[in-house]
Design a protein around this nucleic acid. Structure first.
Length: 215
DNA sequence: AGCCAGGGTCTAA
DNA sequence: TTAGACCATGGC
């Protein structure tokens, strides 16, 4: 059974120093909503082409229908436009200065984010790690899939969270880097090469195939 | 044509 | 607590 740190090292060795989502908190806030059940290519077809639009005041000033049209290519545009504006209202209460909060505030921020309709566990953790610099491990579909393929019997997200958080230093940069490496591995490599020759994790990720029990 | 994508909410059992 | 329908779009 592979340990979380080894998991990280193997990916890092294969893909090099991991990138970071963005240094701009506003980009994280907006993109984390847009990318839900969507793809990067579609996210890039939206409001992100206009950096002047990615500002809290601008997003709050436009009506929801207008914002919805701007983000249409990302899918679920009605729900997402509503969520983005609710998120901006919440962000205002932090004076648009995410890095100023203390580590002890993590559970508070997480609860507040989860209270916003359209923001679930994954999105909340993405925002915590990449925008607020808080160590809350991000669990996405790719992470679940890799762990399953690694033969780890972690049935719930709670178990997966414990697997990582109990073995890794509580370091938001490490959490963010690992999450990014997993994306790198799954999107850049596994999805384009389903057979995954020379896989650094030495597993069969089975992209493009139905997940089957007992396989 | 149909399947699927880095999710989230709601409902029914 | 968990499974399944639903939400929308576009690329392959």
């Amino acid at each position: 059974m592979i340990e979380p740190m080894e998991f990280y090292e193997r990916l890092k060795e294969a893909y090099g120093e991991p990138l970071w989502w963005s240094e701009d908190p506003m980009v994280i806030l907006v993109e984390s909503i847009l990318v839900q059940q969507s793809k990067w290519t579609r996210v890039r077809q939206t409001v992100l082409d206009e950096p002047r639009l990615i500002q809290p005041e601008v997003l709050l000033a436009m009506d929801q229908e207008t914002l919805a049209e701007l983000i249409r290519p990302a899918g679920f545009h009605q729900a997402k436009s509503r969520t983005i504006q609710a998120l901006m209202e919440w962000y205002k209460t932090y004076d648009f200065a995410p890095r100023s909060v203390s580590v002890r505030a993590l559970p508070v921020i997480r609860r507040e984010l989860l209270a916003i309709r359209g923001i679930g566990e994954e999105t909340a953790d993405v925002i915590l790690v990449y925008a607020f610099g808080q160590p809350s491990f991000i669990i996405d579909a790719y992470t679940r899939r890799l762990l399953t393929r690694l033969g780890l019997d972690l049935k719930t997200d709670r178990a997966i969270r414990h697997y990582f958080e109990s073995a890794l230093p509580r370091d938001y940069q490490l959490y963010g880097s690992l999450h990014w490496l997993i994306l790198e591995h799954c999107i850049q490599r596994c999805r384009t090469k389903p057979d995954c020759p020379g896989c650094p994790l030495r597993i069969d990720c089975r992209f493009g195939r139905k997940e089957t029990l007992n396989s």
